[in-house]
Every structure is written in structure tokens, then in C-alpha cells.
Design a protein around this nucleic acid. Sequence first.
DNA 1: TGCAAATTTATGTACATACATTTAATGTTG
DNA 2: CAACATTAAATGTATGTACATAAATTTGCA
Lengths: 151, 151
Amino acid sequence: MRIEDEIKQPIFKDEHQKAYINLVYTAGWLQLRQAAAFKTFGLTLPQFNILRILRGQHPLPATVALLIERMLDKTSNASRIVDRLEEKKLVTRTVCPANRRAVDIRITKAGLDLLERIEEAGVTQSSGVTQLNATELHQLNTLLDKIRSVE
Amino acid sequence: MRIEDEIKQPIFKDEHQKAYINLVYTAGWLQLRQAAAFKTFGLTLPQFNILRILRGQHPLPATVALLIERMLDKTSNASRIVDRLEEKKLVTRTVCPANRRAVDIRITKAGLDLLERIEEAGVTQSSGVTQLNATELHQLNTLLDKIRSVE
DNA sequence: TGCAAATTTATGTACATACATTTAATGTTG
DNA sequence: CAACATTAAATGTATGTACATAAATTTGCA
């Protein structure tokens, strides 16, 4: 469906505004679908993303600083997302012996198992970008990179 | 900058995953810039969006249901965003005489003035989509519409 | 060494999101 | 018309986002 019909706004100020709204709307649309899929596993999207970063490090630990660096949304609050994962016993937190300011965060066996179950269920494939072929994917990536090329 | 470098993740599972991450990341990037611009006027992005919908209706009122229908993020909570705007005297809320379940929401003179000041400051132009020319904008809109064409 | 600056994480506050539930008014139907 | 369903908005709760500040530790340098 065209974005005009999707948000019932037939006229945009210009094509820039239309593209902006389409971009933000589509990203939200994708995230909503992903979040719904993770919900059946008791995870939110940011929690899932952090678990995945931790698995990438496993068996090495990650610090909060490393999580922030790798997160899509860098301004969110990694500490509190780790709080939730710790409550669910999906990660552990121990003071880093080499630098007692830092905290070593590790994914647990339960966390690894959960990720595996989620991936077996094919949840991570559910994003609508599978609608696009190789040429279109390349086009899209180029356009998005260009948008962010302001400074 | 390419998305690989932006989030310091050199390898993606496939091009679909890369496009998905690029899309979500770029939308967040745009919204963060917009939000920062509105902040100087004491508004958040959703508050601004609702004010703009109300101006579109002006001098007719809007109901909460209409706001939700037009909002980019339909699952957000329009009631409470209107609460904030009402506290700032940018909108008024009165029970709809024709249907006492509904609430008539109207933008005030102060709200209209604020929107005008924001637009004079050119804040709404700040989105990075201005990097794209007409052909690219059309390409982008087509690709995004296609992504959402699952069901 | 000692002390200020920098680093790392945690916490506080305001706002927004997601979703379930509640409250009040209106429609519907036997 | 009474009982029940539906509709419209508000409220409750958990989580996340944005940003400022605090607390603890380490670093650097006079």
C-alpha cells in the first residue's frame, strides 16, 4: 500500500517530506512486527539485540560500553536493559577484575538456548525486506547511506 | 558513511539483514535530529506531529480517534500526548456536544504561533532526505512501499 | 605521593510506547 | 424499555528513550 493511503494523508508538502514520513513509518512498521514475534519468547527488541551482541562475544564478556557501541540505538540505556535480562537469568553481571569500574556481562546457557529457539522459529526472517531482490536491496542501502551523508 | 562503519559491524548475515538494520538505523538517525531541533521549542516529536494534525483540522476540532488514525505511530497513546499539550496551553479539550463519549481537541492561538515559529526557523527542513534528488526520492518511496507489501 | 581529570556504570526524571483494563456514553435488540 | 454489546477516551503497568547527574575507580601529572 502506498504511504499516502497507509496514513490517510493524500497530500505532502513535497517529495522530501513524503520520503521522510515513509521512511520513519516503514521502520516503525518493521520494528512492530519484529517486537510482536519476540514477545512470545518474553523478550523485547532491545533485549534481543543485546543478547545477540553478547553471544557474538561469548565466551568472552562484554562491558556496558561495548554494548552501547554496538547497539542500533546508541542513546538508549543499556544498564537497564541488562537489568531485565539479569532478572530473567539470561545474562550475568560481575565486576571486571582488571578494571573495577567496568562490569563484565556474559550470556548464560539459558540465554544461548533462548536465542537458538527464537532463530529456529524463524522469527528473525520475518522482516518485510525479504520482499526486495538483490538489486533493490543494494539501491536501498545506497539511498539510506546517502541520507545520512549530511555531515 | 556506510552502515557497516556506522555501527562497527563489518559482516551481516545477508543483504536483507543489512538493509533492515540500515533502514531502522537511518530512521532513528533522522528522528533524533528532528527531536533535537524541536527541543529548543519545548516540544517532542510526537507532540509536534499532533499539533500539525490539529492545525490541519483547524478551526474544526479533532477527536482522539482521529489523531490516532493520522499518527505515524498508531500504537502510541494520544490521550497522554494531548495531556502535555494541554498543560502547555497549546490545545484545548472539551467534551463533544454531539457525542459525549468523544472529546473535541482544538489547537489554540499559542499552538498555531508556535508551529509558525518552528517552521520559520526551518527546523522541519533539517531532515537528511534533502540529500536525495527527485529520481532517488521516487526510488526510495517505491522500495519502502514494497517492503510493506507483505499482506 | 597526592589530587584533579577522565572513565565507567548506575540512577533520577520526564516523556513515549505497548498493551490491558476501566469508565462512561451510546447503540441494539429482545 | 431493560439488558447487553459497542464505542471513545482515560488510566494502569511495564518497558524503553533521552538526557542530566551521581558514585566509584582509574589515570595522569605536578
